[in-house]
Write a protein that binds this DNA or RNA. Structure first.
Length: 146
DNA sequence: ATTCTGACA
DNA sequence: TGTCAGTA
């Protein structure tokens, strides 16, 4: 049976459907991530292209480079069983998770330090002006007067 | 009016 | 990627 839908799209249409600009689509093509067929010089996109674009966009959302996304997509052409594709995905995802978790730890560390500084500053502030913002003058004037 | 390619930001 | 230019 012919399960391949015949509906085709123009750059503008596909861009609208995926909420991106035609420029971005052409850019991904230039990067070798997609190769739509053509009607003369104008690009014609099929559902296959749309599916690839969606994978590209998801890859981007997850923080992968267009190069990595491209390497992953290429494996769909070759290995039909998608074994190597799954292996690469597992590898990349693990790598990505480790990186993000490392960054998360660094962020926590920085936040902790900032919280410490803020606490210290607030304590120093409290000792200096027990009664918040009343007299703006210097409170140590009497001790100097002696 | 719309698309395409190439250049520059 | 956005945007502009010069085409087809």
């Amino acid at each position: 049976m012919d399960g391949s839908m015949t509906q085709l799209f123009t750059v503008t249409e596909l861009a609208g459907l995926l909420d991106i600009t035609p420029r971005a689509i052409r850019f991904y093509e230039q990067k070798g991530l997609i190769n739509p067929r053509r009607a003369g010089k104008t690009r014609v996109y099929t559902h296959r292209d749309k599916a690839r674009l969606q994978l590209i966009l998801r890859g981007k959302r997850l923080g992968f480079s267009l190069t990595e996304i491209g390497e992953y997509l290429d494996l769909y052409e070759v290995d039909r069983t998608q074994t190597s594709q799954l292996q690469l995905l597992q590898e990349k995802v693990t790598e990505r998770i480790e990186l993000l978790e490392a960054q998360q730890r660094d962020l926590q560390q920085t936040l902790s330090e900032l919280h410490d500084v803020r606490d210290q500053v607030e304590r120093a502030m409290a000792e200096r002006t027990p009664v918040a913002g009343k007299q703006s003058g210097d409170g140590k004037a009497d001790s100097d007067a002696a």
